[in-house]
Structures are given as structure tokens and as C-alpha cells.
């Protein structure tokens, strides 16, 4: 509890403030301006009961540190990010894992968030249990909000079991054909010529599905291909050098796509949301979840 209180004090009640995690995706949605106070969320794992499949963790904890602890009990979370990313950063950006079909959406991983609001008061969103329909879905609103509504200090995440077996295959089988011969591949990536498929589950099942793909010309590979840095929603043809995450419909591209105009009706709700949570626009100023390629 003490570190949360410290976090609240750091955020304070006035002046522009941003919270920085690993800084690995610091430019998503625009960089914060000059003269903005930078604070850090608490880090460390506060409670973890593998049988409950939830973990209480400081938002400043790195994904790697969390993954290490969870892996001891063969569990993981749905969050994804480059080396050095923090839990809070991954939630604020809200990108889904390429293994989304296996681990789920990032936004569904957040069960509870203890936050500091723009008024400098602490509040709690969601609840500690794996299922909760008590009140509004604030947690989902916070994921992907780039810290513009509130600053997350400590969160409870849902964990999932790490599969017994996992392997990647690559070959010219189309994603549509992969889907036909596999039940629920953890990931299907498509680079325009080749599919990169991740199969996960029990060893015998994975091997059986893999052998069907191998029969159609796919080969086992070490892991996923390296992904280009920019995430664009796929509209039209897949650009040169891009890799499509088939399940999510996101294209990992060498170039950032143009930022699309937001439907004014959506922007209208978003603006009211921002005004209601942060009327003086002091939280992560200049960062805008709508200023991302679409």
C-alpha cells in the first residue's frame, strides 16, 4: 500500500505529469511535450496465487520480470511488448500478443487497476475476481488509453496456463488453408507469400496438426519472423515487407500508415470522456490514442 500512496503523491494534484515505463513505445500516439513531470509507477509482484490464476503487480514491473515468476508455475499473461516494456506500458498501449488466439486480448487481461486520477485521488477500476459485472467496464476503457484518463499504479491481471508444447512452422500454405486443417492455431502470420503458424497445446495434438501442415509443405522454424515496427490496420493489399497478423487484422509494416480521420461522433464521446476524467489535460499531455495509424 505504501508505494501506491507514494505514487499518488508524486502525481500530485497540479501540473502536467506523465508516467513512464520502459519507454519502448514512447512515441505511440505522440510524444509528451517539454516540461512535463515524469513519474514511475511502483514495481514488483505483490501477490500471486497460481491456483487463482491472478497476479497483483505494480504497473512499473517489467514484462520480463513478471513472466519469469509466472513461468515457475507454467503461467503467463496476455500482454506483449519489446524487451524492457512494463506491465503499465503494455496496458496503456494495449497491443495484443501475436499469440492472441491462445492468450486472449490484452484488454481482457486487466481485472483490476488501482489508479491515480487527474484530481490526484486514488480510485479503483474493476475488481479482483476473474469474472465481474459490478459496475462499468473501466478497465477496458483504460487499456489502450495511453495514460490519458488515469495513471495505473497497481493492477491485477488474469493469467493463463503456458501450453505443454509450442512450435512454429513456415510455408506457402495460405492462412485460409491453415485454418481448415488446424483447430485453433495460436498465431497465423502472413507475409504475402508464406504463412508463419504457431501451434500450441498438448504435444501429441500439436504434432498431429503440425504433421498435416508439414505434409503440405510447411517446415518447422525456431520462432516467429521478426516483425516490422509499425502496426497498421490492414486496408486493401498487404504492403511490401509487411506481415499480417491474421487473427487480429493488424499489419506489421516497415512504414507507418497515415493517421485516419476519426468519426466525429466517436471523437465526441472520446472528448467528453477525456474532459470528465482529466478536465485540465494534465495526464500525459500531447499523447492521443486517436493519433495512431489505422
Amino acid at each position: 500500500m505504501s508505494d501506491l500512496e507514494e505514487f499518488r503523491n508524486e502525481v500530485g494534484t497540479t501540473g502536467s505529469v506523465c508516467v513512464k515505463g520502459g519507454g519502448t513505445r514512447w512515441d505511440v500516439g505522440g510524444e509528451v511535450g517539454q516540461g512535463v513531470r515524469v513519474v514511475s509507477a511502483p514495481s514488483g509482484i505483490d501477490a500471486y496465487d497460481p491456483a487463482e490464476m491472478t497476479v497483483l503487480v505494480g504497473a512499473g514491473t517489467t514484462l520480463t520480470a513478471l513472466a519469469e515468476v509466472l513461468a515457475e508455475h507454467r503461467q503467463e499473461v496476455a500482454l506483449a511488448g519489446p524487451v524492457g516494456s512494463t506491465v503499465g506500458g503494455a496496458l496503456a498501449v494495449g497491443w495484443n500478443s501475436i499469440r492472441r488466439q491462445r492468450v486472449g486480448f490484452a484488454r481482457d487481461a486487466l481485472l483490476q487497476a488501482e489508479c491515480v486520477g487527474a484530481d490526484g485521488k486514488r480510485f479503483k477500476a474493476g475488481g479482483p475476481t476473474v469474472k465481474n459485472a459490478s459496475g462499468y467496464e473501466l478497465c477496458r476503457l483504460l487499456v489502450g488509453s495511453l495514460g490519458t484518463l488515469a495513471l495505473m499504479g497497481r493492477v491485477i491481471l488474469r493469467t493463463t496456463p503456458i501450453p505443454e508444447w509450442s512450435l512454429w512452422l513456415r510455408g506457402s500454405v495460405t492462412p485460409a488453408d491453415v485454418v481448415k486443417s488446424c483447430y485453433r492455431p495460436a498465431s497465423i502470420l502472413w507475409d504475402g507469400s508464406y504463412s508463419h503458424v504457431c501451434l500450441e497445446g498438448y504435444e501429441a495434438d500439436v504434432q498431429r496438426e503440425a504433421s498435416a501442415l508439414i505434409d503440405s509443405g510447411m517446415v518447422k522454424v525456431q520462432g516467429p519472423p521478426s516483425l516490422p515496427p509499425h502496426r497498421n490496420r490492414l486496408t486493401g493489399d498487404l504492403p511490401e515487407g509487411a506481415i499480417l497478423d491474421v487473427a487480429i487484422g493488424v499489419a506489421h509494416c516497415p512504414e507507418a500508415a497515415a493517421i485516419q480521420c476519426v468519426d466525429p461522433a466517436v471523437k465526441c464521446i472520446a472528448d467528453r470522456m477525456k474532459a470528465n476524467f482529466d478536465p485540465h489535460r494534465r495526464l500525459n499531455p500531447n499523447r492521443d490514442p486517436y493519433s495512431v495509424p489505422a
Binding site: V143, R233, V266, M273
Partner: peptide, 8 residues
């Protein structure tokens, strides 16, 4: 795609 902006 990942919807842009807040998850309204």
C-alpha cells in the same frame, strides 16, 4: 484491427 483510440 486493434480499434484506434479508447475502447469505447
Amino acid at each position: 484491427g486493434d480499434a484506434v483510440g479508447y475502447d469505447l
